[in-house]
Design a protein around this nucleic acid. Structure first.
Lengths: 287, 287
DNA sequence: TAGATTGTTAATCGATTAACAATC
DNA sequence: TAGATTGTTAATCGATTAACAATC
């Protein structure tokens, strides 16, 4: 592979340090930013029920966090509450919306219109938050020309023009993993500076471009890890005595296996590691 | 609302403390667990290319993290590397798979077969990681009986029997938000102990049940926050002089607004807060 | 042996939390 | 005033990172 030290901000996982630093410029930690949408959602529900004010305790419960954290989070935004009373719901909705940049319109392009692209195009939560689907794009001639969520699917060739004329700064990638980096490069070249990536691939982008990823498979794997522990912590089917042994013994065993040219438990590793097309989304999303 | 202090482990965001504590029992921090799937994906790609060994530097680059973090992560699993050489790819694939619980079969039910449910049913990354779709379920008679990804969509009434007979411990919720808690309750009652929630709702579950959420809208909002900052940090359209003023002045302004019974900038807050059905996924997923 | 690379240590940093003074 | 609730402080905890001794 011979890959040099990666630039911290050029990998798919946005460099937490960079994000923190930039947020800290105005004093809002990244962890707080990630919770603001939760608060906003809970506040919007209260607003629709015409609830005028809410305490940190009530709002925290509705958002699923504890109240100390919520108050700390809000303290980064300013002093928007009233001691002894609570927070004005409408005012807080507005302030958080503004802080998140939701008081402006964000045109978005979605690239790769398979089932997932369809689902996103139809997602009501986008429009109600200031996100507007500027265009649906696909490279497959069989898909181009069809409609999804009332919008025509346009060809990738139009990407550059659409991004330029509609001032698109956010792109959503729902292509198969093999196409994702290439699509990403074109988006960035066209002027997109924020990317939401659903393809299970690490994307490389230049400094100044933010990438967030949503990975369906990873979430399930994390659940499986905890599920495994709940099951009584008895050794799983794949466990061997050596695997449970103290570090030095395991290490020695590993070396023995390597020395013997042997793949450790290959028959057991194979089913999960190579059971199918690795993370292929082509069944979901046309190329 | 009058909601009592929420039990830390009963909210949708899995109590990080609890997760950490349980992981720490065997010494694996939650942040490390969340990265294991990334390493596994990179290793699987190397395995398919028949690469025998890999250094921490190379693997870290492929996974999009730095090598110190990767070595630290691996140190929680044991000593699986060889100094001066690197890691045996096949052996590491097996060890990480085992640690994550992927050497066993995980039957999964998906509830709510709209576009998103379809996309997930078709997602190749599941099957190749030991996750097997045990059943697709929906409450809508018009959807029940159709097929998705070659599987029949079955009625919610069959949920309990399916979970019991097929030993399902993981459920995926892709219903509209209004149905999510009810579906969650039924899943838990039937014996499911891990839930992946795509509905934009906070789920309440008993102790011992893990919930992870994937929230499309929240990811976009976080991108918008950073995008807003890139745009030169000039005041956005919604800013007023008071909103930019020091804390005490802002607070005073808030109080004045409240005293006047006035909603702050209602015309500006309204479009984003109430533009459409809030987070309604019904266009995406049939009830 | 000499070069390469791991596994671990220790310092640093950010996030969480409880507690409480400030103040409505 | 008395009760309620915010905003902030300070302690604690987990995560990250660089550096390097161990060792292949």
């Amino acid at each position: 592979m011979a890959i040099g030290r990666p630039s911290p901000s050029s990998s798919q996982t946005p460099d937490p340090g960079a994000a923190r630093r930039s947020s800290r410029a105005r004093g809002i930690p990244e962890a707080t930013v990630a919770r603001l949408p939760l608060y906003l959602r809970a506040l919007t529900a209260l607003s629709e029920r015409s609830v005028p004010t809410v305490s940190s305790e009530e709002l925290a419960a509705a958002a699923g966090v504890n109240s100390a954290k919520l108050r700390k989070d809000f303290s980064y935004l300013g002093s928007y509450g009233t001691r002894g009373v609570g927070y004005d719901v409408e005012y807080l909705v507005y302030q958080i919306s503004r802080e998140l940049g939701l008081t402006q319109d964000w045109p978005v392009v979605i690239v790769g219109i398979g089932n997932l692209g369809h689902a996103l195009a139809n997602y009501g939560g986008f429009a109600s938050r200031g996100f507007r689907v500027a265009a649906l794009l696909d490279a497959d001639p069989n898909v181009v020309g069809s409609t999804a969520a009332g919008l025509p699917v346009r060809h990738m060739d139009e990407l550059e023009e659409i991004v330029a004329t509609q001032h698109v700064s956010i792109g959503v990638i729902t292509t198969p993993p093999g196409a994702a980096q290439q699509v990403c490069d074109r988006l960035v070249e066209a002027g997109v500076t924020s990317i939401l990536n659903f393809a299970p691939t690490v994307l490389t982008v230049p400094d100044g471009v933010d990438v967030r990823k949503v990975d369906l498979s990873i979430e399930l794997q994390i659940l499986a890890f905890h599920e495994q522990r709940k099951a009584g912590d008895e050794p799983s089917a794949g466990d061997s005595v050596l695997d449970r042994a103290p570090g030095p013994v395991r290490a020695a065993a590993a070396k023995l296996r390597r020395a013997a040219g042997g793949k450790a438990e290959p028959a057991k590793a194979a089913p999960t590691a190579k059971g199918g097309p690795d993370d292929d989304l082509s069944a979901v999303m046309p190329a």
